[in-house]
Design a protein around this nucleic acid. Sequence first.
RNA 1: CGGGGCGUAGCGCAGUUGGUAGCGCGCUUGGUUCGGGACCAAGAGGCCGCUGGUUCAAGUCCAGUCGCCCCGACCA
Length: 482
Amino acid sequence: MPNDKEKEFVKEIPSKKDNFSDWYTSVVLKAELADYAPVRGCMVIRPYGYKIWENMQSLLDRRFKETGHENAYFPLFIPESFLQKEAEHVKGFSPQVAWVTRGGDEDLTERLAVRPTSEAIICSMYSKWVKSYRDLPVLINQWCNIVRWEKTTRLFLRTTEFLWQEGHTLHRTREEADEEAIKMLNVYVDFVENEMAIPLVYGRKTESEKFPGALHTYSIEALMPDGQALQAGTSHNLGQFFSKAFDIKYLDDDNTEKFPWGTSWGITTRMIGALIMTHGDDKGLRLPPRIAPVQIVIVPILFGKDDDKVIAKAKEIYEVIRKDYRVYLDDRLEYTPGWKFNEWEMRGVPLRVEIGPKDILKEQVVFVPRDGTGKKFIKEAELKDSVGKILIDIQNNLFNSAKQVLRSKISEASTIEEFNKKIGEIPGFIKVFWCGSQQCENELIDKTKTTPRCIPLDQKIKGKCIICGKETETTIYYARAY
RNA sequence: CGGGGCGUAGCGCAGUUGGUAGCGCGCUUGGUUCGGGACCAAGAGGCCGCUGGUUCAAGUCCAGUCGCCCCGACCA
């Protein structure tokens, strides 16, 4: 039961339901994930937020290595002529590119783009490195920063500079490239659902929504509590467009020169925004244990009399679990336990362990999980096992409740009227049949003010296109999007 | 890039018909406290976003400019 004081505390964070945008910004700032930088559109990722990124990096990087990829690093600056080699590519990115025109006191003979993505610079190197079919596949990833000149920015969700990972691969055949693109899409699905506990829909992008210069784009799409879709990661089959533009050729085993097939795939710090929005509540952040910077906070309950005993016991507990988990022992004297409870809940720590004089007598500790499932009294002897179990439960509970939300916000429609009625009632994904024509796509976008998100893979069910009524096996998700 | 809003102490805000700046929280010191943001006392802290103008006098009026937030068109 929240008492008056608790309500007063909660007031410092706007209600998630009533004021979603303000709630989001307030949580990012109060939890010290990030802060506004003195540069337009840029943010500082603070240590607590950066730890989330580091955890994401290590969980993703492990998966990249397991699927045979290696890390490398390419330049931040890309000569303008390189960017212009692939026509669609330059057209798609030119409104967002930042340019360097001077070095020291001299004008440059050629402008340098601050990388908006690295296909151009990486492919220019690949053309030097790839000569034979024995050089394929090339499986390289890079972790770096990206600059895209954005008109409106929001912490994590859209900033002028952001951090990401971009994989760039080359393959002998189209099939192999598509296999790679889908393999990495599945790596993202696995990572986002199992580590970040964010349920997804995923599939192929339409022609109009695909990456500039790609043959196909695949994406993972999360749904935020306000019913807006958030593109959380993309994987592209680049076809031979970049190989041809950058003259990457290999001699195949039939002694003829061929262009390899490329892919690229990326996930960004924007995911942290999705994490905050998906799990957070009116008290602040809620972080899934597998990604949380601090998984467990230990709060000793001090009265002045038996403080030494309580602190000693708290340290003992700390030592028992610190080897296997990210634990913080909050033994600061200047704050009351109640203050600490609220503080760590606001910062999303999955599990709080309380230990006070009463608990010592009963040889127990108190568990308070952040998933809202309530206080639990745990025998000290069972501490270690119980911690492991409850963290798994919290991870699952966060994922399952987010999944319920997602399910409840996917509707289907077979006419435009029905579509608009449903998106009005339950903002979210609307699944429709689509004949695949650009004309029908445009009409649907125009009449619903939503955008196509993705076409689920491996569809078999037949239906009629929502616009023209033609028979089709293709369904597609539409939504309003971030 | 259009429409709306806001910039005053670290944070949240007040500031009357223009007259020389205040409240709450936080911070510092001391004491009492501590199982859901404790209390008392004494302190520290300001180029009122920036630039220019009107005026004897500007936080307040005018113009410009920068930044941020919200709502719409482009984007991960």
